[in-house]
């Protein structure tokens, strides 16, 4: 056989092998979590908060963490939307395509996105000391909002970039202001994409643990106040695995399964919305 053909096939095999390795690890992670999590999963896990002695194997569940993660996630996502939407619209409607300021803002967002969540956690901690807020739902929300708004803004920005400039020009030519163009025309056109970006950011927000470790703290009671600590699922997993008791660890695996299911559902939902509802959009 031709030497070139051998080389071709060799590298093709290597590529298929690495693709299978990467996808295989995804399947492997999901299977491991399912296999370890399902036996410990019970109705009690998702409907009760930890009772006394929960961490040495007594009764209870992780409802506190499930609700805490959802509330923290929703709150911080809303905060992040307030920052992200205007900035994304500013980049695409108010600034010129070749504007240096737009370039600088996009660059800054990309760099902010690369800052590790533990650093956001530490920064959130300094903010707490400075503003005299205790470790609480509020502090956690602010920190997570800072963590996810760069990725959310860049996501919305990419969606807005795709919208045809004729549409924008037509609306402006009819005499609308930029604000009206943004809110009444472009926003509706971009809505499915915006929802996708927001859901993906929400998923990132609830799956992160390092940023809330300092700022949101942890508690066994259900979330009830902005000024009180709040439990989160990733930390619940982490703390339960840190105990030496097999039953508690098993419930940690179940909590990990719940967390993974939530995040995967969000991701899949985000993609379905992104592709399904984009049918009515003017291309």
């Amino acid at each position: 056989m031709d030497k070139r053909k051998i080389e071709e096939n060799f590298f093709k095999l290597l590529m298929i092998f690495s693709t299978l390795t990467v996808l295989g690890s995804l399947a492997f992670i999901l299977l491991t979590i399912l296999w370890k999590g399902i036996p410990a999963l019970s109705w009690e896990m998702v409907t009760q908060s930890p009772k006394g002695g929960y961490y040495i194997g007594k009764a209870g569940g992780v409802l506190n963490a499930i609700l805490g993660s959802l509330i923290l996630g929703i709150g911080s996502t809303l905060l992040a939307i307030v920052l992200s939407l205007p900035i994304a619209f500013y980049l695409n409607l108010y600034l010129q395509k070749k504007s240096r300021l737009a370039l600088a803002i996009r660059f800054a967002l990309d760099v902010l996105w690369g800052i590790p969540s533990i650093v956001y956690g530490a920064f959130g901690f300094t903010l707490m000391l400075w503003l005299k807020i205790p470790a609480s739902l509020l502090a956690g929300m602010i920190t997570i909002a800072l963590l996810i708004f760069p990725i959310m803004t860049r996501g919305i920005d990419e969606v807005l970039k795709m919208i045809s400039s004729e549409l924008k020009e037509a609306t402006l030519a009819l005499g609308s202001t930029r604000w009206e163009t943004a809110t009444k025309v472009i926003f509706r056109q971009a809505l499915p994409g915006i929802i996708t970006a927001v859901l993906l950011a929400f998923g990132r927000g609830i799956s992160d643990a390092a940023a809330v470790l300092f700022t949101a703290g942890f508690t066994d009671s259900l979330p009830h106040s902005l000024w009180k600590p709040v439990a989160t699922l990733p930390l619940a997993v982490f703390f339960q695995l840190g105990t030496p008791f097999a039953e508690v660890q098993a419930r940690g695996y179940a909590a990990a399964l719940i967390l993974t299911a939530m995040v995967l559902l969000l991701n899949i939902l985000a993609r379905i919305i992104g592709s399904r509802f984009s049918r009515h959009i003017i291309k």
């Binding site: 693709t19 990467v22 996808l23 690890s25 995804l26 492997f28 992670i29 491991t32 979590i33 370890k36 993906l200 998923g203 990132r204 609830i206 799956s207 992160d208 643990a209 390092a210 699922l233 990733p234 930390l235 997993v237 982490f238 695995l241 940690g252 695996y253 990990a256 967390l259 993974t260 995040v263 995967l264 969000l266 991701n267 899949i268 993609r271």
Partner: peptide, 24 residues
């Protein structure tokens, strides 16, 4: 099909990766 699959891998919580690391 493969691309979204790989992006899902990026969405999984770091703690879950940790659990997998400890178990496997």
């Amino acid at each position: 099909w493969l691309k979204p699959g790989i992006e899902l891998l990026a969405g999984i919580s770091p703690v879950v990766y940790g659990v997998w690391g400890m178990l496997v």
